[in-house]
């Protein structure tokens, strides 16, 4: 318990055997080196150990203010970030589009500058427009953490996915990862692609060709317009959420047909390796991209992903604070 509360900061349970990466912002995984990526993952594993304690709190970010600025709805990602901040003893405040001035015509930049004037140290932003976190990082002084921007990146989701894979499979070099579904509109797919490519995994993406974006293979993967080839011998099967508004919009005919040809059921899962991991970033459409028996089956690690999300976000907030001199290394 003394260790958990870590009153003097002498023993916070964070191992510092490796040099920690400079992370003034976390905008995406595209430009992270292998070394930095591994350091973040290792730190996340340490944070996870903190979360397993009876008193799940470290004093490391005391006096640091984390603002969550969500210009697109997402309850669970926001909660995960807020919980992560609280476990590090940061103060949190939140701003969501529904209650915001943005709907009254104020620009994102004006909103961000107004919020900045209240003195947050780190801004966690979710936005429906790709590039919005970059836009803010170039214009305001706070550390920016991307909590998902348009169809670009969702770096903490990518990190938690890779953390989950590493826990189960160890080194990911040469492991076959199948990412299946709406690749075109998915920031989760892109963040995973960048991280997995850096770690040397063999990534296959699959889905109806309407949902495979132009030139996706140049991001370091193999693309398939049907799912079977991607599933064959896979170590990991990651299903992406199908947004129902895509149907009837010429991307695919309807949910029933989608499930029939692109959904993951028991039979199709047998194409993958026997103990292949089944992942999903949530929220799931049961019976569309994934059948309930697979989602709840023994190979599913979907809830571990959620658990790892808090640990990864703790690691990221900690590193951004550290890189900005807001916190001395413990």
């Amino acid at each position: 318990m003394m260790e958990a509360t870590g009153q003097t900061g002498q023993n916070s349970g964070i191992s510092l055997a490796r040099p920690l990466p400079q992370l003034r912002h976390l905008l995406g995984l595209q430009d992270l080196s292998r070394q930095d990526l591994l350091a973040i993952l290792d730190l996340s594993a340490d944070m996870k150990a903190v979360n397993a304690r009876r008193i799940k709190k470290l004093p490391t970010l005391r006096g640091v203010t984390v603002l969550t600025l969500f210009v697109e709805n997402s309850t669970r990602t926001r909660m995960s970030f807020e919980l992560a901040a609280k476990r590090l003893s940061a103060d949190t405040m939140s701003f969501t589009a529904s209650t915001s001035a943005l709907s009254k015509g104020e620009t994102l930049l004006d909103t961000a500058r107004n919020l900045e004037a209240m003195g947050p140290d780190i801004v966690v932003i979710r936005h429906s427009c790709s590039g919005a976190p970059q836009f803010l990082a170039q214009r305001i002084g706070c550390g920016i953490v991307n909590a998902g921007d348009g169809a670009h990146e969702h770096p903490t989701q990518g990190l938690l996915d890779v953390l989950t894979m590493r826990e189960k499979l160890g080194d990911l070099a040469g492991k076959k990862v199948a990412i299946i579904g709406d690749i075109r509109h998915s920031r989760v797919a892109r963040s995973n692609l960048f991280a997995l490519a850096t770690l040397g995994a063999e990534v296959h993406v699959a889905g109806p060709a309407t949902l495979l974006p132009t030139g996706i293979e140049q991001l370091g993967c193999i693309a398939h317009p049907r799912v079977e080839a991607a599933l064959e011998g896979a170590d990991v099967v990651m299903m992406l959420r199908i947004q129902r508004e895509r149907q009837g919009n010429d991307f695919f005919p309807n949910a029933h047909e989608y499930h029939r040809f692109f959904g993951l059921d028991q039979e199709r899962l047998r194409l993958a390796k026997p103990h292949a991991l089944v992942m999903h970033p949530g929220p799931m459409n049961r019976g569309v991209e994934i059948s309930p028996e697979v989602a709840d089956g023994p190979q599913s690690v979907i809830l571990q992903q959620v658990e790892n999300g808090v640990a990864v976000r703790m690691a990221v907030l900690y590193l951004v604070a550290l890189s900005r001199g807001l916190q001395q290394a413990a």
Partner: peptide
């Protein structure tokens, strides 16, 4: 422009 860059950036492409 719709191409590898629009895919990388997650911006909607115009072919």
């Amino acid at each position: 422009h719709e191409g590898p860059w629009s895919t990388r950036l997650g911006l909607r492409g115009c072919p």
